[in-house]
Amino acid sequence: MKAVSTILGLLLIVTMQAQDEKLPYYEITEESEVYTAGTVAARVIDGLGFRYYWATEGLRDEDLAFRPSDMARTTEETIDHILGLSKVIVNSTLKKPNVRTEEEKLTFAEKRKQTLINIKTAADILRASEDLSEYKIIFKNDKGTFEYPFWNNLNGPIGDALWHCGQVISFRRSSGNPYNSKAGVFVGKVRE
Results as ranks from 00 to 15, higher is better:
residue 121 T to W: 12
residue 148 Y to I: 05
residue 77 E to H: 02
residue 55 A to R: 02
residue 42 A to P: 05
residue 6 T to G: 05
residue 38 G to Y: 08
residue 53 Y to F: 15
residue 90 V to Q: 14
residue 59 L to T: 03
residue 23 L to T: 10
residue 139 F to V: 06
residue 88 V to S: 05
residue 165 C to R: 02
residue 107 T to W: 09
residue 34 V to I: 12
residue 148 Y to F: 15
residue 107 T to Q: 03
residue 23 L to F: 12
residue 129 S to G: 07
residue 123 A to N: 03
residue 85 L to R: 01
residue 53 Y to D: 03
residue 81 H to T: 09
residue 165 C to K: 00
residue 50 F to R: 01
residue 185 V to W: 13
residue 113 K to M: 12
residue 70 D to S: 11
residue 159 G to P: 02
residue 141 N to D: 15
residue 180 N to A: 08
residue 115 T to W: 06
residue 44 V to G: 04
residue 176 G to W: 10
residue 51 R to E: 12
residue 181 S to Y: 12
residue 111 K to A: 06
residue 70 D to I: 07
residue 67 R to E: 09
residue 30 E to G: 14
residue 98 N to A: 04
residue 191 R to M: 09
residue 85 L to P: 07
residue 168 V to S: 03
residue 153 N to R: 00
residue 142 D to G: 11
residue 94 L to K: 15
residue 173 R to K: 13
residue 179 Y to S: 08
residue 165 C to Q: 04
residue 37 A to V: 04
residue 188 G to E: 05
residue 180 N to R: 07
residue 87 K to Q: 15
residue 157 P to H: 05
residue 135 Y to H: 13
residue 54 W to L: 10
residue 177 N to T: 08
residue 58 G to H: 11
residue 64 L to D: 01
residue 169 I to C: 04
residue 24 P to Q: 07
residue 104 E to V: 14
residue 140 K to M: 13
residue 157 P to D: 07
residue 190 V to R: 12
residue 160 D to K: 06
residue 88 V to L: 05
residue 64 L to G: 01
residue 133 S to V: 06
residue 108 F to E: 00
residue 168 V to L: 10
residue 151 W to D: 13
residue 6 T to C: 05
residue 64 L to T: 03
residue 179 Y to L: 12
residue 32 S to R: 05
residue 65 A to Q: 11
residue 113 K to F: 09
residue 171 F to Y: 15
residue 175 S to P: 03
residue 82 I to L: 09
residue 32 S to A: 15
residue 113 K to R: 14
residue 101 T to S: 11
residue 91 N to W: 03
residue 33 E to N: 08
residue 157 P to C: 09
residue 102 E to A: 14
residue 74 T to M: 08
residue 85 L to I: 01
residue 137 I to H: 03
residue 148 Y to E: 13
residue 46 D to K: 00
residue 48 L to V: 11
residue 178 P to W: 06
